[in-house]
């Protein structure tokens, strides 16, 4: 793992130009999660088995339609990493007992939303990491229980309105730092990505694919339905999440956290917030200066900390 892999994704033109994930899924138009997942699938390839938890993407495969060219297994909301454990162990046993050939092996990839990753599935994820399970975990994080209509989850950011946080200040709590929780387990790799930064995403998935052990990816997933914006804005909101510093692109490896894309100039967070209906109450009927500045202060404090480190 120590040898430095040289990325084949040096510039945008190196990104795959053909799409592996089949069209025709029931995800919403403009889904930022599906955008990230198809980009990830293009890099991982079809020698994969996706182990899925309950969430929006349960509906990727609806009998008899699947977008996958490889395999897929649905488990439950809480236990996708345990499903990955069973599949990985079984494949290892079959290889060891020479009942399958090496070329029949598959990479095991857990796919869950933030509801499972930040909450119900955290115990099974923690345990899979601690057991050193050789798997990739992809969390599409749309910051709420999106499949049921965007109720507050442990990934919901401060101030956002959800269908269960409807008052004038929005959600009073704070988004859980899942990256830090995962990294505290000292797995092989942890990274944040976003579909609107495909080159950064491709390099990270390429790196993760080449490693062994637990490799965990959180993809911030702009959600037109849950965040209330025009689907057309999906990629732009992703760009703004990065340019305002709200969604730091980073990776953890060998005990070190590295930020992979630090803008030379920051945009104010309100550029990101004001595009989304879930933050509309910060601007209408009158500007909630205190709350906007509280959100800005937290983002600034995060990056000040990064600079000090």
């Amino acid at each position: 793992m120590s040898e430095q892999t040289v990325t084949i994704y040096k510039r945008m033109k190196d990104l795959p130009s053909t799409r592996l994930l089949g069209a025709g899924t029931p995800m919403c138009a403009g889904c930022g999660g599906l955008q990230a997942v198809h980009e990830i699938y293009d890099i991982l390839g079809e020698k994969t088995v996706f182990v899925n938890a309950a969430g929006c993407m349960t509906l990727l495969a609806v009998y008899p339609f699947t977008p996958f060219r490889g395999s897929w297994l649905y488990t439950s909301m809480a236990s996708a990493p345990a499903g990955a454990q069973g599949v990985r162990d079984a494949l290892d046993i079959l290889l060891a007992k020479q009942r399958i050939k090496q070329e029949q092996d598959l990479d095991v990839v857990v796919l869950t939303g933030d509801g499972a990753a930040y909450g119900m599935g955290l115990s099974s994820t923690s345990s899979a990491i601690e057991r050193g399970l050789d798997f990739i975990y992809v969390c599409y994080d749309n910051e709420g229980y999106g499949n049921t209509g965007q109720q507050t989850s442990a990934a919901t950011p401060h101030g956002a309105r959800t269908s269960t946080s409807t008052d004038a200040r929005g959600f009073g709590g704070f988004k859980k730092d899942l990256f830090a929780i995962w990294a505290a387990h000292r797995p092989a790799y942890v990274a944040t990505v976003i579909g609107s930064e495909p080159l950064d995403l491709a390099r990270k998935i390429e790196k993760a694919k080449a490693m062994k052990g637990p490799r965990l990816i959180i993809a911030l997933s702009p959600c037109p339905t849950g965040w209330d914006f025009d689907p057309m804005e999906s990629a732009e909101i992703g760009h703004l999440a990065v340019k305002t510093g709200v969604w730091p692109l980073k990776e953890y490896e060998n005990g070190q956290v590295t930020h992979t894309k630090v803008p030379s100039e920051w945009l104010p967070v309100e550029e990101y917030l004001k595009k989304q209906g879930r933050f509309a109450h910060l601007f209408k009927p009158q500007r909630n200066k205190a709350l906007i500045s509280e959100i800005q202060t937290r983002v600034d404090a995060y990056w000040a900390e990064v600079e000090r480190a």
Partner: peptide, 9 residues
């Protein structure tokens, strides 16, 4: 390819 345990509508 095998998609297992899928939703039916």
């Amino acid at each position: 390819p095998l998609s297992q345990g899928v939703v039916v509508l």
